[in-house]
């Protein structure tokens, strides 16, 4: 009897830590990061941190649709690009005759909303289909959008691109991206624990079963994609502002999607804390490898990533026992099942 009570207590303690431990750590980390600029830091440290935040945000967004819902998005950069171009067009072009050029803060929500609208209109069609159709449709949309941007010369500057006002503020950028990252990762933490998040996992594990239980799978998938697209659009808009220059080739970069996927896989697909962890690890590895092996850094990085995928397909958190993690191979195998 006594023994039983004890173990019950222990499980309670365990479940408390399991439920809140990650969040508490996360809030502590955010608190530390908010104070970080008050320690003696240089511009490059703020800038590097901002790039890590951006990677965390992008990967977390991708992970919401790719890892949690199980719909591999090969063209997620399209939302980044649309956000970046909306920012570029709105602050430099004044496309609407009656409206003046917008400021960063005015253009930002519009950039996110346009990315969201694009996601909804795409998902409306493709997310009804099961299997690999979504992945292929997204890849196609990505490539097509890049060409459309090239053709819409009066608006987008075509291949010559757009120059944004060169206003750089590393401290402001740091706090902005920190805030966006905090919102995104915290929302995903919340989603993971909500009924909505459980439904997403149910769709990933067994879509037909989820449907039988009364989950409106299309709506769930659509909402997940819309959230991911909105914040990716916001991040893209910020990137355009920070880089001060956009053209189709620097914005619609295939490697950006690859980075999102790689970061999520490294940390643990489908987990809340996987993408942040993956981003920090990947960025640190890149930095160390890059400063020490100038000539071979891409090779070394490639070998490392192959190694990780072969021996840790479920990512760092999956290896450590997080059960919401899934390996990419299992995701792809599900394509056959869904048919």
């Amino acid at each position: 009897m006594k023994l039983h009570k004890n173990s019950k207590k222990q499980t309670e303690k365990k479940s408390f830590l399991k439920k809140w431990g990650g969040l508490i750590l996360w809030i502590l980390l955010l608190g530390f990061l908010a104070l970080y600029p008050y320690t003696k830091v240089s511009g490059i440290q703020l800038f590097s941190a901002t790039q890590v935040f951006m990677l965390v945000t992008l990967a977390s967004n991708w992970n919401l649709i790719g890892g949690m819902t199980g719909y591999i998005d090969f063209g997620h950069t399209v939302f980044f690009g649309v956000g970046a171009y909306m920012m570029g067009i709105l602050v430099t072009q004044a496309p609407l005759a009656f409206a003046p050029r917008l400021s960063f803060w005015q253009a930002l929500p519009i950039a996110g909303l346009v990315a969201l609208l694009l996601a909804v209109s795409l998902g409306w069609v493709t997310l009804r289909l099961k299997g690999s159709y979504f992945s292929i449709a997204m890849l196609g949309t990505f490539a097509a959008t890049r060409e459309i941007v090239r053709i819409l010369r009066p608006l987008t500057g075509g291949g010559a691109g757009l120059d944004l006002p060169p206003v750089l503020n590393r401290l402001g950028e740091y706090y902005f991206m920190l805030a966006v990252m905090a919102i995104v990762v915290s929302s995903i933490w919340w989603i993971r624990r909500s009924d909505f998040g459980l439904s997403l996992l149910a769709i990933r594990e067994d879509e037909i079963g989820a449907e039988m239980r009364g989950i409106n799978t299309t709506l769930h998938k659509l909402v997940a994609l819309a959230i991911a697209a909105f914040f990716t659009g916001i991040t893209g808009a910020f990137w355009a502002w920070q880089n001060t220059y956009i053209d189709p080739d620097v914005v619609f970069l295939e490697s950006r999607t690859v980075e999102m996927v790689m970061t999520s896989m490294l940390g643990g697909l489908g987990t809340v804390w996987g993408p942040p962890l993956g981003a920090v690890v990947l960025y640190s590895i890149q930095n160390i490898v890059w400063s020490n092996l100038l000539n071979y850094h891409l090779l070394a990085l490639g070998i490392l990533l192959i190694f990780l995928v072969l021996f840790m397909p479920e990512g760092i958190l999956g290896k450590l026992g997080d059960r919401s993690s899934i390996s990419a191979i299992r995701l792809i195998q599900r394509w056959q099942k869904r048919r």
Partner: peptide, 25 residues
């Protein structure tokens, strides 16, 4: 459980490594 303790360790490690790296030059 195990995973919860590993996260801060890995994060700290990464931050420390990134920090070391920036002081080399």
């Amino acid at each position: 459980m195990k995973s919860l303790f590993s996260i801060p360790i890995l994060l700290t490690l990464a931050v420390v490594l990134a920090g070391c790296n920036s002081n080399i030059s």
